[in-house]
Nucleic acid binder design. Structure first.
Length: 571
RNA sequence: CGGGGCGUGGCGCAGUUUGGCUAGCGCGCCUGCCUUGGGAGCAGGAGGCCGGAGGUUCAAAUCCUCUCGCCCCGACCA
């Protein structure tokens, strides 16, 4: 490709719309442009990187017996009504009607479609296992799109669906996908670590997310350096610890006036207490019924855990009116003493002695509240959000915290969709059984963004060889000089002939401009052709990542580049 | 949806508080000269219904009302 022809409009200045480095660089390097909030057009360079990631994914999916299919973006409402998700998905689903007023959506995912596709064709265990995948645009009307490709409303996703005859089969499919993911991300030059995760709306119990550790990541994860445990904070288990400190003496319960003081921070400042001396009592509506949940003052409640524990569909913080009705006080003064609704407490609450709690009375708190003496709880459970510094649920060592970009997730779905949609097969013993499913997604655009997030410097992108839009850029210092121009064109032709993806910067620009663009776009290898070295019959190779330069005789350039390419990535 | 911010040539911004002359600056773009190992220099030039609609006024980028879009923080998610 000739640089003069390549549609890669680079920007000297950073567009105001971008916050994240990866987003800024994708715009500056001319990889993509925004068309609407959360929607992007890929330009040639960006698309080439995307295609390379897709190709790696295809190879690894095919290697585990995945077969590629392509399903529509526009999906009929009926299928979603069958699974119940037409209502569950809510505002996040892009919905539309055709001219006959029939309802459709832009697919946010494809479980329904694939299940429908398979149920009409798979009849027997002999046809299993079946692993189908597709790479397709998906649509979610995100509440807040942000960070360029990290959270768009339109995004490219690979998803594979597995269908097995039993749990063992599902397990095999699951781990095959799991290990394929490890290979995929490694090939993309990413260190993506699997963490235990919550399955969210998709359903299922066993699931891992693949996280690229990065400050820009939207997810918080916890991990243990000793035993290797790693989990999303949404999922990370809390530990029911034994009491360590000797029991302090229980002081008498006492009510204190706390006018206008309702948050933990305010209470602590006012009463000269520490957050861990307090117990937070939160009033929730679980499927419409009020319940109370308690965590220690320095802890946060994990709503996912509470919802699972209560086995309810909808869990939301109670409105002011309900809180008043339940606690007899405005928001901020609820406490366990004398509360009549079911009361669930996090394990850590067990060990708070002489706690500060709300008095269930406006502008008042209680000092020295103690479990059993002053209040009882309906039951204890793991309800808090686990945080860095907490003990590891596996080995009790200290958990570390980090932020991560979720580039992929694997789920064991079980029979949620096959059952709802009647996708069954006949087992060997003739019994009709729902297919056992798994699903496995990778955000392709997000993966590209994560690669850039982890591979850049102040000058621009540093592509790993495996997904670089082009491998090599040839930069003649001046195309005006016929000797340089001739040498550059010859090298260009030779590299193309050798199958090396090459761009020749034939623009009539000063060398500085060409170097800056080359660095910004991030070609892994640059060949500089200048008058001085050319006199010696030499050219100069610069490695983008290390900035390492070496001059060598021009007839050796092609073979040297091939050597570098065969050596895999240039780190 | 709540909170905050922003819409002025392709990009980055000033001007808006306190209405007033032809709407500026840097970068980019076009032409010419010159220059050629890290975003050169000089000269000339093109390009803007100031997001949109309505209103106030002799006069609106500037004041008022409504509206659309975009970004950031939060609740949701690959």
């Amino acid at each position: 490709m000739l640089m003069s022809q390549l549609y890669a409009p680079t920007l000297r200045e950073t567009p105001a719309e971008a916050e994240l480095v990866s987003h800024q660089l994708m715009l500056r390097a001319g990889l993509m442009r925004r068309s609407a909030s959360g929607m992007y057009s890929f330009l040639p360079l960006g698309l080439r990187a995307v295609r390379k990631v897709e190709q790696i994914i295809r190879e690894e999916m095919n290697a585990i017996m995945g077969q590629e299919v392509l399903m529509p973006i526009v999906q009929p409402a009926e299928l979603w009504q069958e699974s119940g998700r037409w209502d569950d998905y809510g505002d996040e689903m892009f919905r539309l009607k055709d001219r006959h007023s029939r309802e459709f959506c832009l697919g946010p995912t494809h479980e329904e479609l694939i299940t429908a596709l398979v149920r009409s064709e798979v009849r027997s265990y002999r046809q299993l296992p079946l692993r189908l995948y597709q790479i397709q645009n998906k649509y979610r009307d995100e509440i807040r799109p942000r960070f360029g490709l990290m959270r768009g409303r339109e995004f490219i996703m690979k998803d594979m669906y597995s269908f097995d005859k039993d749990e063992e089969g599902l397990d095999e499919s699951y781990w095959a996908a799991f290990h394929a993911y490890e290979r995929i991300f490694r090939r993309c030059g990413l260190d993506a670590r699997p963490v235990e995760a919550d399955s969210g709306a998709i359903g299922g119990d066993v699931t891992h997310e693949f996280m690229v550790l990065a400050e820009a990541g939207e997810d918080a994860i916890l991990y243990c350096t000793k035993c290797g445990y790693a989990a999303n904070v949404e999922r990370a288990e809390g530990v029911d610890q034994e009491k360590t400190a000797p029991a302090a003496e229980q002081k008498p319960l006492q009510e204190v006036a706390t006018p206008q003081i309702s948050t933990i921070a305010q209470v602590c400042a006012f009463l000269n207490k520490e957050p861990q001396d307090c117990i937070k009592t939160l009033i929730y509506l679980a499927d419409g019924k009020p319940v109370a949940a308690m965590v220690r003052g320095d802890h946060n409640l994990n709503e996912i855990k509470l919802r699972k524990f209560l086995k309810c569909q909808v869990l939301e913080l109670a409105d002011e009116e309900t809180i008043y009705k339940v606690s007899g006080a405005p928001v901020g003064f609820a406490g366990p003493v004398g509360l009549s609704v079911p009361l669930y407490a996090d394990y850590a609450v067990k060990h708070v002695v002489n706690a500060v709690v709300g008095a269930n009375k406006r502008d008042a708190h209680l000092l020295n509240a103690n479990l059993d003496r002053d209040f009882t709880v309906t039951s204890f459970a793991d309800l808090r959000e686990t945080q860095p510094g907490d003990p590891c649920p596996r080995c009790q060592d200290v958990l570390q915290g980090a932020r991560g970009i979720e580039v992929g997730q694997v789920f064991k779905l079980g029979t949620k969709y096959s059952e709802a949609m009647g996708a069954t097969f006949l087992q060997e013993n003739g019994v009709e059984t729902p297919l056992i499913m798994g699903c496995y997604g990778i955000g392709v655009g997000r993966t590209v963004a994560a690669v850039i997030e982890k591979n850049h410097d102040e000058d621009g992108i540093i592509w790993p060889m495996s997904i670089a839009p082009y491998h090599v850029i040839i930069v003649p210092v001046s195309m005006e000089d016929p000797v340089q121009a001739e040498a550059a064109r010859k090298l260009y032709a030779d590299l193309l002939a050798a199958g090396v993806e090459t761009v020749l910067d034939d623009r009539d620009e000063r060398p500085g401009v060409k170097f800056k663009d080359a660095d910004l776009i991030g070609f892994p290898i640059r060949v500089t052709i200048g008058p001085k070295s050319l006199e010696q019959g030499e050219m100069e190779i610069t490695i983008r990542r290390s900035k390492e330069k070496s001059s060598l005789p021009m007839e050796q350039v092609v073979s040297e580049i091939q050597r570098i390419l065969e050596g895999g990535d240039v780190k």
